[in-house]
Write a protein that binds this DNA or RNA. Sequence first.
DNA 1: GGCATATATGTCATATTTGGCATATTTGGC
DNA 2: GCCAAATATGCCAAATATGACATATATGCC
Lengths: 109, 109
Amino acid sequence: MRTAKRKKLESAGWKVGGADEFLGLTADEAAYIEMKLALGTSLRDRRIGKNLSQVEFARMVKSSQSRVAKMEAGDPSVSIDLLMKSLLALGASPKELARAIASSTTHAA
Amino acid sequence: MRTAKRKKLESAGWKVGGADEFLGLTADEAAYIEMKLALGTSLRDRRIGKNLSQVEFARMVKSSQSRVAKMEAGDPSVSIDLLMKSLLALGASPKELARAIASSTTHAA
DNA sequence: GGCATATATGTCATATTTGGCATATTTGGC
DNA sequence: GCCAAATATGCCAAATATGACATATATGCC
């Protein structure tokens, strides 16, 4: 794992308590977090692709700008449920969600 | 949508409040629910594939038998986060999760 | 049918997630 | 550098998910 992604993980506020990998996370925890980050990135891409500000998008999905920011950052306080519902609201299909998740696995499996 | 799946949806305790599709659900709500059901089915298949009872599996993931039953049934009270974490615990890879999600889309998109 | 094991369903106290708000920081034009 | 628009971060009360438990129903064997 290269430093770019590592930095992204660390900065995302993850100081989990597992016992395994590079930051003290379990393989499962790491996979889970990476999926979230992938969904967050996908969300941001879609939102920007539609020329929406976080505020505008938040209104669309009846959330708040701060939560949207957290979604896109993969904050520990946001659920995958919320990410998925938000992506669906932006017009993503389940298959596209699947693609995002699959792509969270650059490496092993 | 044929009656088999329809029944499965109804029986899963979903009497949502949307406004669109056959049961009063939005296209997004329907997609979300189908993803959950797909993940639940996948979980059950994997669990059984490993010859684990719900009780045994519940112990593995520090949950309870009742929650496992709800997971597999796609109960409204279970989150996709929990389903995904559980699947990972059973050894599924993100790519396999993605496959399950993608397969929730028999039809449109 | 009776019995044992597995799964389903209902409820509840506790834990986590959520929207909302205030405020800080970043970004881009001038 | 100043300013405005966008995004990030911290916090909190309300909403939702969670494990646990009791109990009901199913499933298979005798």
